[in-house]
Write a protein that binds this DNA or RNA. Structure first.
Lengths: 198, 198
DNA sequence: GTACAAGTATACGAAAAAAGTATAATACAA
DNA sequence: TTGTATTATACTTTTTTCGTATACTTGTAC
């Protein structure tokens, strides 16, 4: 549905949602900002949640594509994981915590179900990739993939912590520190393995 | 009114208002976040606008004090103005445009009147200072103070412009450029004057 | 020219959220 | 013990937002 009006709605909504979350933003506000009548909005979406879902779906799909591209590239395994972490980091930063908070506080059954499904799918995909890397001997055999997943997630949230940020000259330094930590805690200490392609 | 509960209300409100403007933020949200009952809120404030006004008043007064301190310091005139610009710049940045937009879109007579009065008073004060500087021969006699005021204001807004920012390695470089521009366009080109104290 | 698609403007009723109040109860310090 | 500050709850009123119905405009493909 690449209608110009619809595109304006989506673009405006993303801007507002990312900034304020979606409960603070009204349908009429989106329409006003997008220069579109309310009727047009309801032509494309059943309601606000429908738009939220649609936008999330798009964003998630986009990042899955990027993820797949990175994983399919001929880069060494460490670089791949590095890139993935950076990708996630960017997304987390720009869409702000407001949006996610709204998501889980919305209490909307449909919305939660949708989100849970998407999250589960992504987690499965990434888990599978880690499992394969483990099989190939790229990461320790005695580490539980679930732990890696949990840790990566926590890491992304920690990177937003103001207290922690203070100790680093820049955001990038903190991310590098974390990434390094991630590898030295997880990667095989086998010199010949570093920089190996997968 | 330095009651601990009231302080919490004000602190929480500032945080939320600065981030989202005040129309997006509800009284109940402030109370919830501040860990204060709604009744307590209404003990201290007639309504949300009352709180907004009170906070604005406090912030304006604070910045008037800082302004006065800078002007009363023994610094050279250029440094004073430099500091004032930086002060303004900081404030503009942190309280975000959302808050001001709400102010002028609120349509609330009382609120607008309050804001206009405050603005007018501040403008008068600053105008008077510039007028005096002109009398003392610190700035050109043939420049209209109103123009200076207008230009300073525009400058602050321009500094928030993303397009403009792009051309500078950092925010500070842009501010320095602007401040320099401000002086070389306004200050007497009299070498002996530079660095003179007032 | 007409038929159809995309969009608009406006007005409206229903529903939900937010505002604001009354009341009774708690907590605690002078 | 008396008073002050605060809370919790439940409630009414007001405002906002939602979502729809209707009639109108505009562009364009046939």
């Amino acid at each position: 549905m690449p209608s110009p009006k619809n595109e304006r709605i989506r673009k405006t909504a993303v801007n507002l949602f990312w900034k304020h979350g979606f409960t603070r933003v009204t349908v009429e506000e989106i329409c006003r900002e997008a220069g579109v009548s309310k009727m047009t909005f309801y032509k494309y979406y059943r309601n606000k949640n429908d738009l939220v879902k649609s936008i999330m779906e798009e964003k998630i799909n986009e990042s899955i594509v990027t993820y797949r591209e990175i994983m399919a590239s001929g880069l060494p395994y460490t670089s791949k994981v590095e890139k993935i972490i950076l990708l996630k980091m960017e997304q987390t930063r720009e869409m702000s915590s407001e949006f996610f908070r709204d998501y889980f506080n919305s209490g909307d059954e449909e919305l939660m179900a949708f989100m849970n499904k998407k999250t589960r799918m992504t987690v499965e995909m990434v888990t599978e990739d880690f499992r394969r890397a483990q099989e190939q001997g790229l990461i320790r055999e005695d580490i539980r993939i679930e732990f890696i997943m949990y840790f990566m997630n926590k890491m992304l949230h920690l990177a937003q912590d103001k207290e922690l940020k203070k100790h680093y000259p820049s955001m990038n330094d903190l991310i590098m520190e974390m990434t390094r930590f991630f590898f030295y805690g997880v990667m095989k200490r086998n010199e010949s393995q570093n920089g190996q392609e997968t």
